[in-house]
Nucleic acid binder design. Structure first.
Length: 580
RNA sequence: GGCCCCGUAGCUCAGGGGAUAGAGCGGCCGCCUCCUAAGCGGCAGGUCGCAGGUUCGAAUCCUGCCGGGGUCGCCA
């Protein structure tokens, strides 16, 4: 039940009646007509811009349209008043029964309240994390993982058919480096001193891999040349890293539907097939690139190479798909992989990348546009850096010194719920400060805690009521006499709850899960405010002498709790039962 | 130098065509014999980086500039 959508339908209906009555010209487009919460609650419950939007196409004065519309709307649905204001806004007020019906709907629908069919089952592939299988996941990956997972949940909630996917970069030079690094640890396990040369991965996490290799191969590989062991060691080490990454993701509560392998595109003709398709469209050719403007790289030399004509799609220059040694650039398997996703029948592709990959957005979008012949949009969400703090002091990270903070470090110190919520309190394209002390603070300064506390308070009320012998199961509460919820403060909370379905759609359309976190904070704030009113006005407490009154008021609290719980569910955060 | 992101209250950030631009923190003043005061209310605080443009209307869209960050063929 989306009261805003329902009211908008009333407005559209009234507009159509005006057309039929000759009060508006025929053929108007009502798409831009919106019904929204007003900026200032004093203006009313909802506001529509209909008169202002239609004034120009109808060649009429906005206030004239608004006056007629107001007259037609009064009394329809739960609309009790419609007043023209400002430049042509129409401010609407709804009867208490409308808001009470929302509370009843929440109790009836439970966690499904706010679900939408906005997506109409559109098949969306969300590819995220896709960390190289060369080591543990670090903080940057953590934010990408949380964002991608929450976005996927949000889209699912809004009616899309969502697939969570991880692309394993197991085909490039970096996994050869991994193999060499693991081989040194294997030598170490055999009692030799490892030589971690410049460019190899020095982390301790490869020590157990070396030991496992010793278990498997004994000393048999020690004197062998790289050509003998590279493939096997690489395979083993990559699998071990992926195992570690899956465990890290599990710690965060992230579960992928599909893991796709870059390697599976090599030597199978799949890269060639994708490029062949592009070549057939005249988009792959042999040619030379202009040198980059500004300062040239020291070793720049012009050479002919295989290029993808991404400039056709707005990129700054065409992009090479083959290296000078004849091997593929990373871009080539990426093209094949995205072609594969298109071929699997997705209607929309979403990639979640680190912001440092921003330079590759245009070429990837170009490739998908070409491969799908413009049918499948690719949205790329860039995730900005996470800056770590402790005691307000920046945390220095250095991969070389091995002091980089892993996902595991963060989750073990802050907990998965806190980590997830905090990482969703910023837009994906804004940098995020993560302070280990602040996120664990138990006060209203900490949004995670604040929202959890609101939910815990609702649970507390339900427990107290049950102890007092009041039936508080959802079915009973849904059947309560909600007409008793007449106080302005109670209706205000109900109005906030009523915004939830609308907010879900806005967040899903914008692919912005952070909006959920901000809404939950506002809802929690309203609940805390209402709770405190009970201090001054005993009649506003949830538990009253009279059982029927108690049930009505508890229904309101429970409805808030249900929405908080659903919202936290989208963010992947467990709602707290109590704060002890 | 090209491209991308950002610039909103002292600080951290929401808002991304509509009404007098919001929240939290910090500052000041209040509220517990009462379901968790780990909370709530109020006051003070703004040339929405600058300059043009589009529009009935711009923090929001367009252009240019300034400032910060990222990135720039054979690493992914």
């Amino acid at each position: 039940m989306n009261l805003f959508a329902e009211t908008r339908a009333l407005v559209i209906g009234a507009l159509n009646d005006m057309v039929a009555a000759g009060e508006l010209p025929a053929g108007l487009d009502f798409a831009a007509v919106a019904v929204e919460p007003p900026r200032d609650a004093a203006h009313g419950d909802m506001a529509t811009n209909a008169a202002m939007v239609l004034a120009k196409p109808a060649a009429m004065q906005p206030r004239a349209i608004a006056e007629t519309l107001a007259a037609r709307l009064k009394g329809r649905g739960g609309i009790t008043s419609a007043e023209v204001a400002g430049p042509g806004f129409l401010n609407l007020r709804l009867a208490p029964a409308s808001w009470q019906a929302v509370v009843r709907a929440v109790l009836g629908d439970g966690g499904k309240f706010g679900r939408s069919d906005l997506g109409r089952g559109t098949k969306v592939n969300v590819e995220f994390v896709s960390a190289n299988p060369t080591g543990p996941m670090h903080v940057g990956h953590t934010r990408g993982a949380v964002f991608g997972d929450a976005l996927a949940s949000l889209l699912d909630f809004a009616g899309y058919g969502v697939t969570r996917e991880y692309y394993i970069n197991d085909g490039g030079a970096q996994v050869d480096v991994l193999a060499r690094s693991a081989f040194e640890r294997y030598r170490e396990a055999n009692g030799l001193s490892p030589e971690i040369a410049e460019g190899l991965y020095p982390g301790d996490y490869l020590i157990p891999v070396g030991e496992a290799l010793k278990e498997k191969y004994g000393a048999s590989l020690l004197d062998q040349p790289e050509s003998v062991w590279l493939v096997d060691v690489r395979e083993y080490a990559t699998a071990a890293m992926m195992q570690m990454i899956r465990e890290d993701l599990a710690l965060l509560g992230v579960e992928m539907d599909i893991y796709s392998s870059e390697k599976s595109f090599y030597g199978t003709g799949r890269i060639e097939a994708a490029l062949e398709r592009l070549r057939g469209l005249g988009l792959v050719y042999q040619g030379k690139l202009e040198p980059p403007k500004g300062k040239l790289p020291d070793d720049w030399e012009e050479r002919e190479q295989t290029l993808f004509r991404s400039t056709e799609f707005g990129d700054d220059q065409d992009r090479p798909v083959q290296k000078s040694d004849g091997g593929w650039t990373y871009f080539a398997p990426d093209i094949a992989y995205h072609y594969d996703k298109v071929e699997r029948g997705f209607d929309v592709l979403i990639d979640v990348w680190g912001a440092d990959h921003g330079g590759y957005v245009k070429r990837m979008k170009a490739a998908v546009s070409a491969l799908s012949e413009g049918r499948v949009p690719l949205e790329i969400k860039l995730i900005q850096l996470v800056k770590l703090f402790k005691n307000g002091e920046p945390f220095k990270m250095s991969k070389r010194a091995g002091t980089f903070v892993t996902l595991r470090d963060v989750v073990e110190q802050a907990g998965a719920d806190v980590t997830r919520f905090v990482m969703l309190t910023r837009k994906n394209d804004a940098p995020l400060d993560f302070d280990f002390d602040k996120v664990l603070e138990q006060s209203k300064d900490n949004p995670v805690w604040y929202v959890q506390y609101a939910h815990a308070r609702v649970r507390s009320v339900l427990r107290k009521a049950a102890e007092a012998g009041i039936a508080v199961d959802d079915a009973t509460l849904a059947g309560a006499d909600l007409g008793k919820l007449g106080h302005e403060a109670e209706l205000a909370l109900a109005r906030k709850i009523a915004e939830w379905p609308r907010l879900v759609e806005i967040a899903a359309k914008g692919q912005e899960p952070h909006r959920i976190a901000f809404y939950l904070y506002e809802l929690a704030s309203d609940l805390h405010a209402h709770w405190n009113r009970g201090n001054e006005d005993i009649t506003l407490r949830f538990i009253q002498e009279d059982t029927a009154t108690s049930q009505a008021k508890i229904a309101l609290a429970r409805a808030a709790g249900v929405v908080i719980s659903a919202g936290l569910g989208i963010l992947g955060v467990t709602p707290a039962e109590e704060m002890r």
